[in-house]
Simulated scan of single mutants.
Amino acid sequence: MADRLHLDRFLPYLLSVTSNLVSDRIAQAYDALFGLSIPEWRLIALIAEHAPITQAQLGERSRMDKVTVSRAAIALTARGLLARAPNPDDRRSHHLALTEAGRALYAEVAPKAMEWERRIFGRFEAHELEQFTDMLRRIDAAAQEDH
């Protein structure tokens, strides 16, 4: 039967399983070392790069749903890591920025994140990583087209 599905060769499955494994390993480290969930870390990193930014913009950039972004933002604000300011362009939203404590946490976590990336991907050549990154972006674009 030529059309039979074999999960161990089905690329969407392999991509998902590998992605989950990498995310789970890193999530354990973020939680153990910094008390952060993956959504919370993603918000901190995105805000560090793009502040001021709204929750809606964070959702678009991270592709996390509104509820996940909202919960992470609430938790980070409660910990004193995020500050909210009125958005002069849209009174229904707020701009988010890292507080001094948030910037300090980012400065501590970012080098660790890059170290974890090196541990996982350091066994590959630079050109392989460039090709892989390019392929991921092309897969992303193709998945969006089919949506």
Score class of each variant (00 low, 15 high):
G59W: 02
A73D: 05
L36M: 05
A78D: 13
S62D: 06
A27S: 09
G122S: 08
A78G: 10
H147I: 15
R119D: 11
F132N: 11
E125C: 04
G102E: 02
H95G: 05
H6D: 15
R9P: 09
T18C: 14
A78I: 06
L21D: 06
L76T: 00
I44Q: 01
D24C: 09
Y13L: 09
A143I: 11
I47F: 03
R84G: 07
D146Q: 14
Q131H: 13
A85L: 09
L136W: 11
T77A: 11
D31Y: 15
L81C: 04
P88Q: 03
I74H: 11
A113M: 11
R123Y: 14
M114W: 14
A29E: 15
V22D: 02
R91D: 13
A32E: 09
D89E: 11
L105G: 01
R123P: 04
L81I: 04
L36Q: 02
Q144R: 14
L136F: 12
I53R: 08
W116P: 04
R84K: 11
R61V: 07
I44A: 00
A72L: 01
A27V: 08
L14T: 01
P52H: 03
R71F: 07
D134S: 14
F124K: 08
A48Y: 08
A45M: 09
D134H: 15
E108A: 06
A83C: 05
H6L: 15
S37E: 01
L81Y: 05
R119V: 05
A27W: 07
E130K: 12
S93R: 00
Y30T: 02
P39R: 06
S16N: 11
L46G: 04
K112S: 13
R84A: 09
L81Q: 00
A73P: 06
A48G: 10
V67W: 11
A32D: 06
E40Y: 05
F121M: 06
S93G: 07
P12G: 04
I53W: 02
L98W: 01
A48S: 15
G122L: 08
R123I: 10
D146P: 07
L136I: 12
A143S: 13
M114H: 14
Y30F: 03
R63S: 12
E130W: 12
M135D: 14
R61K: 11
Q131C: 11
A73E: 03
Q57C: 02
R92S: 00
A73W: 03
T77S: 09
D146H: 15
H147V: 13
M64Q: 08
H6R: 14
E108I: 01
A97P: 00
D8I: 12
Y106L: 08
L136C: 14
A32G: 05
P12S: 03
S93V: 01
